[in-house]
């Protein structure tokens, strides 16, 4: 029996759930331990639906919708694990790896990388598409941190954290299409930035080894993406 008047019934993967309206499908799934793969989602900053990993099928909707940006509605029937979705998740992962120069063996984030975890989860054994091998820079001009564009997957988590949480807006995205790059100020070296506060939040937000602190070696990297949401909550409370 529905004991809360303000909840709505939905079905996810044949599981009947009563959920609060106003939540996104992703939030509901995370609360109910239904696995949804994500890359650009970071709790605490706005969702943009860019990585397309969290796509779900909704009965009666002929398009696949991203779970992170779609709100639940009453009597929604959602599927998160059909063959089609699994196939597309695999292709997306392959494209992530083929886009830039990801070499786990020499990466500082080896073992602590969300992209690497994603590869394991979708069962990636090889990449069927040709690697694009773009020419990417490694920006070491900042006194403490390094930005390695080779390992960037353009999730723009750093951009959103810097803008929404820190409020500095040091990062943004330049160009378009496959030539997009994360930039600091006028595409100048990070170390010369006039807006960066060196707070290091982008480092914690980054899911891969694209932003990392200097003076550490493989295995020493500690990233804490959860701290972003904690910060947001604390700032709301104004303790």
């Amino acid at each position: 029996m529905n004991c809360y008047m303000n909840t709505i019934p939905i079905i996810i993967d044949d599981k009947k759930l009563e959920v609060d309206p106003g939540k996104t499908i992703l939030e509901v799934c995370r609360e109910n331990e239904i696995e949804i793969l994500t890359m650009c989602h970071l709790k605490g900053v706005l969702d943009i639906g860019a990585c397309r990993l969290c796509l779900v099928e909704i009965e009666g909707v002929n398009k696949l919708l991203s779970a992170c940006t779609t709100k639940v509605a009453a009597n929604m029937i959602i599927r998160t694990n059909t063959d089609r979705i699994k196939k597309y998740q695999r292709i997306t992962t392959e494209l992530f790896f083929a886009e830039r120069n990801h070499v786990c063996a020499v990466c500082v984030a080896n073992g602590k990388c969300e992209l690497q975890d994603l590869g394991y989860k979708v069962g990636l054994d090889h990449i069927r598409y040709p690697h694009l091998f773009p020419q990417c820079e490694v920006d070491t001009s900042h006194p403490w941190y390094v930005m390695d564009h080779n390992r960037c997957i353009m999730c723009t988590r750093c951009v959103r954290v810097c803008n929404e949480v820190e409020g500095a807006h040091n990062w943004d995205v330049m160009n378009r299409g496959h030539q997009v790059r994360v930039i600091s100020d006028f595409n100048s070296p990070w170390g010369e930035s006039v807006t960066c506060t060196s707070c290091g939040k982008c480092l914690h937000a980054c899911p891969t080894g694209a932003i990392w602190p200097k003076a550490i070696v493989q295995g020493q990297l500690q990233k804490n993406p959860g701290m972003i949401n904690e910060l947001v909550e604390k700032r709301k409370m104004k303790l």
Partner: peptide, 16 residues
């Protein structure tokens, strides 16, 4: 050329 580069399928997929 005209892809905005925001989502993966369009950004990388069109190139591939």
């Amino acid at each position: 050329d005209e892809s905005c580069g925001k989502c993966v399928p369009c950004r990388v997929g069109t190139r591939m």
